[in-house]
Design a protein around this nucleic acid. Structure first.
Length: 440
RNA sequence: GGCCCCAUCGUCUAUCGGCUAGGACACGAGGUUCUCAUCCUUGUAAGAGGAGUUCGACUCUCCUUGGGGCUGCCA
């Protein structure tokens, strides 16, 4: 049994979308699962539309998702000589012929056509779709070399698969019809036909397949929006495959161990951003505290917030279960690091702009000034005593908004402890003063 | 038009002839609670339609309907 060799063969003609990248994920997992090789081939034969930017974006996305590939990156255009040699050979053997054709855009010239068999059936066993068969008469001859002498996708794709010794072709559903053509090409070139596995499409909320023009589905967008690569990877994996039990959040190791092409679904799956968001939160909550802290520090630094002196571990502990996206970290905890924190208008209106609040805040400031020790437990005990069993809301809410500017966040007393006595007291007094001045 | 593929809660899915059709997301209710989130409990919600095979069909067969793919000198 020879080694499994699969490839991801995108054409860099636009931004890579989730459908493409899921194909990459499935190829990668299949290679890792079988202990084979995962190859990358850039199909840049469409010179008009392939761009270096698209290639760079693609490689960045793969790296971000941890899709490492084996052997050297294969650029299809660099193998053009071989493609053409094969075309010559096919012509010499009568399997291809030249013909005068007019293209869609009106150019007329001589192209090389591959001759398909005219009778019998072409069949293959697709690993995901099962047995596939088609009458030869239903498949037309097709062009393999353009009138300008450049090889066309079908030829280049097959010859490269031969040269890269690809054993399993795992690609999008949109290639099923091509497979009947490609099989004949492999045979005509005297090469073994690889096994095929065709992946269903991922469709959008409207039920339409994602296209390269679908900006929202561009993998890089998810990264910018603060999704974790692990979460996207995990979510995409589940869109058409499951481990056979009820687990959904899987480690990369589990995925590699359990992944199986035979269990991949035939039906198209609808992309559900809500579930991805949940998955992302799940990944954040499950992240090691160390990792969350590092991420937080990086985000704070990027936002220009000075984190020195603050109890970052304590803040991270409070924030982690409340974070849906890493990108929202600075906005959610800026008040820990600056006195210039914004006041949410609604919360200010509801909790602070009330009769008696300035007086309340000032009296609380004095109490916190005297509190000993200044920690969450004694803060809570103090307010509990003030509330006399009637509920701490009337005290807690104004304090929270005064010291953080926000209506939601960590438990108030944990928050105050993290802030420290000095800041707590100063903020309460400052808020009271601003309320009196009417500057809040 | 021709050829091919597909069809379980709103969404992702389990079921491989025995089903009171299970789980997750989303949504609703409740609990914990100082807010938000987490967490726990819980509810609503599905087999496109019609024939057939069978003791028994979500599961097998056929038809209909609906969706998708392909039908390029794009990939």
């Amino acid at each position: 049994m020879s080694e499994t060799r699969v490839r991801f063969a995108p054409s860099p003609t636009g931004k890579v979308h989730i459908g493409n990248i899921r194909a990459a994920i499935y190829n990668w997992l299949y290679a890792r699962h079988t202990g084979g090789k995962f190859l990358l081939r850039i199909e840049d034969t469409d010179l008009e539309r392939s761009t270096p930017e698209a290639i760079r974006a693609l490689l960045e996305c793969m790296e971000w998702l941890g899709l490492d590939w084996d052997e050297e990156t294969f650029y299809q255009t660099r193998n053009a000589k071989r493609h053409l040699e094969c075309a010559e050979r096919l012509m010499a053997e009568g399997r291809a012929y030249k013909v005068e054709k007019t293209s869609r855009d009106g150019k007329t010239g001589e192209v090389v056509m591959f001759r398909m068999p005219k009778e019998g059936t072409i069949e293959f066993d697709d690993i995901v779709k099962g047995h596939m068969a088609k009458k030869a008469e239903d498949v037309q001859d097709f062009a393999i070399v353009r009138s300008d002498g450049s090889p066309i996708f079908h030829l280049a794709n097959v010859v490269d698969d031969i040269d890269q010794r690809v054993t399993h072709v795992i690609r999008g559903d949109d290639h099923v019809e091509n497979t009947f053509k490609h099989i004949e090409l492999f045979k005509a070139l005297g090469a073994p036909v690889p096994r095929y596995g065709h992946l269903s499409m991922i469709v959008n909320q409207q039920g339409k397949p994602y296209s390269k023009r679908d900006g929202a589905a561009f993998v890089g967008e998810f990264r910018e929006q603060g999704y974790l690569p692990g979460a996207l990877f995990n979510y995409l994996l589940l869109l058409g495959w499951n481990p056979g039990d009820e687990r959904e959040v899987l480690t990369r190791e589990e995925m590699v161990e359990l992944f199986d092409l035979e269990k991949v679904h035939v039906t198209a799956a609808k992309f559900d951003i809500k579930k991805l968001q949940w998955m992302n939160g799940e990944y954040i909550r499950r992240a090691p505290a160390e990792e969350y802290r590092r991420e937080m520090e990086a985000r704070l630094a990027a936002a220009g917030l000075p984190a020195q002196g603050a109890d970052l571990d304590g803040i991270a502990r409070q924030l982690q279960p409340r974070t849906k996206f890493y990108s929202e970290i600075p906005g959610n905890c800026a008040y820990f690091f600056t006195e210039d924190y914004p006041f949410d208008p609604k919360a200010t209106e509801k909790r602070l702009k009330k009769d008696g609040v300035p007086e309340l805040l000032e009296s609380l400031a004095s109490k916190f000034e005297a509190l000993d020790p200044f920690d969450a437990a004694s803060g809570e005990a103090m307010v509990k005593e003030l509330s006399a069993g009637q509920g701490m809301g009337p005290w807690v809410h104004p304090i929270r908004v005064a010291v953080s500017g926000r209506a939601e966040g960590p438990g108030l007393f944990e928050m105050l402890e993290l802030l420290g006595r000095e800041k707590t007291v100063a903020r309460l007094r400052r808020a009271a003063a601003r309320l009196r001045e009417g500057t809040l």
